[in-house]
Amino acid sequence: MSSSTPIAGHPDLAELRMRYERASETPTAQMADGLTVLGGLFVALSPWITGFAGTTPSLALNNLVTGLTAVMLGLSFAAAYHRTHGIAWTCPVLGAWVIVSVFVMSGTAVTLSTVLCNVIGGAVLVLAGLGTMAPAMASRASS
């Protein structure tokens, strides 16, 4: 039998947790998390705010699900970045999907309001997602 330290108490793991904790406390990370939540709320509610929910129900449902997913990601990044930083790449992907979805989903009426809502909301999610990924990338580069 060897007397080794349990993995939970390993000094390298504790240092890694502290590094991600410091990264999540930066103003850039906090702003990115907040923008992710706000962008997700905008995407989720935009079909009803601009009135295209009745004409394109498939896009409205897509925006609702994608937006609420982004909201949950933003909240999880803000609450536990050290545990969720590994899935930060999904936020820019969701944003790109929001932008493209208005053009590729069947049964979607391509109107000015649908295009503007999806492009603006998607761009906010892409930029906020890249901002969320930045502290983890900087943390890896400095180690």
Score class of each variant (00 low, 15 high):
Ala23Gly: 02
Ser142Ile: 06
Leu75Thr: 08
Glu21Phe: 12
Thr90Ala: 08
Gly74Trp: 00
Ile87Phe: 07
Gln30Arg: 15
Gly67Pro: 08
Ala79Thr: 05
Leu16Phe: 05
Leu116Ser: 08
Ser2Tyr: 02
Ala14Gln: 12
Ile99Met: 15
Thr26Val: 09
Cys91Glu: 10
Leu75Arg: 05
Ser143Pro: 03
Val43Gln: 12
Ala123Ile: 09
Val124Ile: 15
Ala88Asp: 01
Gly51Asn: 13
Gly129Lys: 04
Gly9Ser: 14
Thr36Pro: 09
Gly122Val: 07
Pro6Val: 02
Gly122Met: 11
Thr108Ile: 03
Leu94Trp: 01
Ala123Val: 11
Leu68Ala: 11
Thr90Pro: 02
Leu116Cys: 08
Phe42Asp: 08
Val102Trp: 00
Gly121Ser: 11
Ala29Gly: 04
His10Asp: 15
Met31Leu: 13
Ser4Met: 03
Trp48Ser: 07
Pro92Glu: 06
Thr28Pro: 01
Leu16Tyr: 06
Gly86Thr: 12
Ala123Thr: 15
Ser2Glu: 03
Ala88Phe: 00
Val102Gln: 12
Val104Arg: 06
Leu68Cys: 11
Gly34Ala: 11
Gly9Tyr: 12
Val37Glu: 15
Ala123Asn: 07
Ala53Met: 02
Ala96Met: 07
Phe103Asn: 06
Arg83Thr: 10
Gly122Pro: 10
Val110Pro: 04
Ala53Val: 01
Phe42His: 10
Ser106His: 12
Ile120Tyr: 09
Pro92Asp: 08
Gly121Met: 05
Ile87Cys: 05
Glu25His: 14
Gly9Leu: 14
Ala138Tyr: 00
Ala70Asp: 08
Val119Tyr: 12
Val65Arg: 09
Ile7Ser: 11
Thr50Trp: 14
Asp33Leu: 01
Met137Asn: 02
Ser24Asn: 00
Leu68Glu: 14
Gly129Ala: 07
Arg17Thr: 15
Gly107Glu: 06
Ala8Thr: 05
Ile120Gly: 05
Ile87Gly: 02
Gly67Gln: 10
His85Tyr: 02
Cys91Ser: 10
Pro27Gln: 07
Gly67Thr: 06
Asp33Lys: 00
Asp12Ala: 15
Arg140Pro: 02
Val119Phe: 09
Glu21Pro: 03
Ala96Phe: 14
Val115His: 07
Ser2Ala: 06
Pro57Ala: 13
Ser142Gly: 03
Gly122Gln: 05
Thr132Phe: 01
Pro6Tyr: 04
Leu75His: 03
Arg19Ser: 09
Ala123Pro: 13
Ala53Leu: 01
Val119Lys: 07
His82Pro: 12
Gly107Ser: 03
Ser76Met: 05
Ser3Met: 13
Ser46Pro: 10
Leu94His: 04
Pro92Trp: 05
Asn62Ile: 04
Gly86Met: 10
Met72Phe: 13
Thr108Val: 15
Ser4Ala: 11
Ile49Lys: 01
Ala60Ser: 15
Leu35Ile: 02
Leu45Met: 14
Val115Gln: 06
Pro11Leu: 11
Ile87Thr: 05
Ile7Val: 13
Gly129Asn: 08
Met1Cys: 02
Ala141Tyr: 09
Ser139Gly: 09
Leu68Arg: 04
Leu35Arg: 03
Arg140Glu: 03
Ser139Val: 02
Leu13Met: 13
Ser143Glu: 12
Met137Phe: 04
Leu59Ile: 06
Asn63Leu: 03
Glu21Met: 09
Leu64Ser: 11
Leu68Ile: 13
Ala8Trp: 02
Leu41Ser: 09
Phe77Met: 12
Ser4Ile: 03
Leu45Val: 12
Met1Val: 03
Thr108Asp: 00
Ala29Met: 05
Tyr20His: 07
